[in-house]
Design a protein around this nucleic acid. Sequence first.
DNA 1: CGGAGACAAAAAGTCAGACTTATTCGTCAC
DNA 2: GTGACGAATAAGTCTGACTTTTTGTCTCCG
Lengths: 233, 233
Amino acid sequence: MSTPGRGLHGHVLDTLGPEITAGEYPPGSVLRTDELAQRFDVSRSVMREAVRVLESMHLVESRRRVGVTVRPKSQWNVYDPQVIRWRLAGKDRPQQLRSLTLLRSAIEPVAAGLAARHATSQQCAELTECALGMVANSRGHRLEEYLVHDMAFHRVILDASGNEMFARLGDVVAEVLAGRTHHDVMFEDPDPAAVTLHVQVAEAVRAGDAARAEELTREITVGALQELDILAP
Amino acid sequence: MSTPGRGLHGHVLDTLGPEITAGEYPPGSVLRTDELAQRFDVSRSVMREAVRVLESMHLVESRRRVGVTVRPKSQWNVYDPQVIRWRLAGKDRPQQLRSLTLLRSAIEPVAAGLAARHATSQQCAELTECALGMVANSRGHRLEEYLVHDMAFHRVILDASGNEMFARLGDVVAEVLAGRTHHDVMFEDPDPAAVTLHVQVAEAVRAGDAARAEELTREITVGALQELDILAP
DNA sequence: CGGAGACAAAAAGTCAGACTTATTCGTCAC
DNA sequence: GTGACGAATAAGTCTGACTTTTTGTCTCCG
């Protein structure tokens, strides 16, 4: 995924990033550049580059005479795709998945409403194509094929919203959906009601009915919340 | 703001980051590490660290034998607080402000609803204190004092939501609010209706009325959208 | 006993230079 | 035209020496 191991410092990050985001070093822990360089068997130049990247993610802070100190989770750049991937891959996965699903439930309905106004005819076509693909693969344990169309569907919605911030959540949403299919138990075929909702959203967007697109999408995301027992009692 | 010029590579970023995010180099433009090092009068080691950070923000891509190529805006990590600050400081400011306000309008109502469920008694107290501060400074050109309480109010809401992703938007929202007061024209006192809404939100959160808190906050954000002529006709 | 100032140690920060490696482009033969 | 080979190029890496800042400690004086 993404850009694995492009350079030595990338390899260091692939190990050190997950360790830090997994909470293996308590906040305030101090790492020394030289020791890390030894541990990973790289030069200090390379190690410094890696530290700089971690620093830009606000995972650590480098101070003279002190060392590289790990920052508390509350300061991390939790929207950094790399950080999200690291956390999804580690033991923080459940909480991360809940956070992201909640984020989805806030963003996607609004995005769908905007998409109903701004979607190009080509985007509408892609949307219906995705919805049809979901229908076609909604039965018979074709989970992988279903997932592909599901991810594409939500990505098109977010793109079509015309908001760059929303659009950039496409990867994140895809990762959440993939996680639900792969990691969490999902032996059974997808909920037929959910499939229908996707088709209806595509219709609403095509018809330019923003309110309806928003409301239908809200139903979809509420379903996702319920799956994770994030209820609104 | 944040951590200015902590080290030479920080100084380089303070100049190069705004240049790139302002679009001064078209996507695909090629920069050479050596030339940049010369231009900023730093060693290549320092320059490389700066490039690594820009790379982690997906602003540029470094490839052997080619150089450092600028990526299209669609690939930037637009949620990176540093990138947001750079764009808000540059000529991209209007679009960035619209994107962020739209993001607010999606997030904050949901956050307020969650806050109504999860806010501690202390957070409720802080909230009413902020709201009262807004009321007290809503007349007589006390814009700065009003702004302080406004920023604090929204930050408490986002924190009290209990969702780390929402909480981390506190800085961004504060920056948007500050921008509205400082940069954009706001000679007059704040809209009394908006002030009242904030007070009512505080009440709803204290009362644990999630639906009402959400709806009232939605009215606030709709007002913010209208100020920027982002309408829902 | 306590505080102020000076000193020493520690770790990051910076730099310069030599070397390595991957990639691309041009050329030449087929 | 196409393919392979080779040279040029720019990033990547390593090393070692030096600088700078910060912190902890030790001493000296009140």
